[in-house]
Design a binder for these strands. Sequence first.
DNA 1: GTCTATAGGATGATAGAC
DNA 2: GTCTATCATCCTATAGAC
Lengths: 204, 204
Amino acid sequence: MYDGLSGWVLFFIFVLMKSTRKEEIVAVASGLFKEKGYSAVSMRDIAQAMNMKAASLYNHISGKQEILSTLIVRVAIEFTNAMETVMAEESSPINKIEKIIEFHIDITVTYAENIAALNNDWMHLEGTDLKRVVKMREDYEENFRSIIKQGINEGRLRPNHPEVILFSILSTLRTLYLWNEKRGKMDVNILKKDMVSVLLKGIV
Amino acid sequence: MYDGLSGWVLFFIFVLMKSTRKEEIVAVASGLFKEKGYSAVSMRDIAQAMNMKAASLYNHISGKQEILSTLIVRVAIEFTNAMETVMAEESSPINKIEKIIEFHIDITVTYAENIAALNNDWMHLEGTDLKRVVKMREDYEENFRSIIKQGINEGRLRPNHPEVILFSILSTLRTLYLWNEKRGKMDVNILKKDMVSVLLKGIV
DNA sequence: GTCTATAGGATGATAGAC
DNA sequence: GTCTATCATCCTATAGAC
């Protein structure tokens, strides 16, 4: 009876270790990718940062590509889900844009390194991962665009070129990850309020 | 007399060729860097795109690093000069911000690839080039920040956190280069007007 | 699960013929 | 100024001992 139990416990620990070890690698690699970019970081760099040898990494991941893919797909899904939640709501375009700004800030707080990879290294994805991420990005932008167009049509947004509005807001939100040190001192809720105010009402 | 003349002419052509050849390399490389990033582009890639062999590149440039440095320093100086011109003017903070938005659009039109390198590959610069570019970037941001603070103090800008305003505008302007295809169809002056309107007056 | 050793190929750069 | 040949080093990834 004890034997059976300890067998299961050991198996559970093994699975747990293996999975957290992979997560450790992904976490360490994401920091390096953010600093120097995917292509400039070698498996030796990642291994060194974990106090191990490059060959040992391959017991936990299939290769460098899997690290990038895990990193990017994870946060891309996060954004897709958040956008779908907003789209499903029955509220005004302005309210939806506020929600988008808020979830971008929330996701950036926990996924800064993933966002760096999504923004700067998506083109180094391969095969179906590349197609999937590009598709998610296109759908995301299309949803955002439709909200803006609706807002203009209803006369609740100023009639500027929709692409200019989309691009202005989105490029600010997408590069929020670069701003984490300065943000660190700022309360997230204050940041959200200021960001909504600046992006919606302008600065004048 | 003819001999002397043709000697000078040949020398001039030689200097001209050498310099335009270097410019050609820088131009071709900048396109590749923009697509895949500095680290993912090899000297063989650059050579192939010019229908020559990698070794031949070294007759015109000292190495890969010189290409990056040329590319980045050039556009960094462009931004620094433009900002200094604006700072020297005696006009309101709002007027200065409008000018900044406008010269960002102008520079982006001619230097899209350089800006990509400045944004994404500056960390691969070495030695004094790295220090110089980082310094120019810090000074640039500090100038922008002082304009914003003055605008808030004078009560002409809404009293949002200055860093939020700085970051929102700057991140939009810095990623304009990503937007060149869509912009291509739009008149530059209309883009400037829309951009100024969206960034200053907001969208609501 | 980590190590050493190494395969197999790419990389930045140089030497020297033409 | 471009080429071929090559160097020395780095890269991702695998094989196999422990």
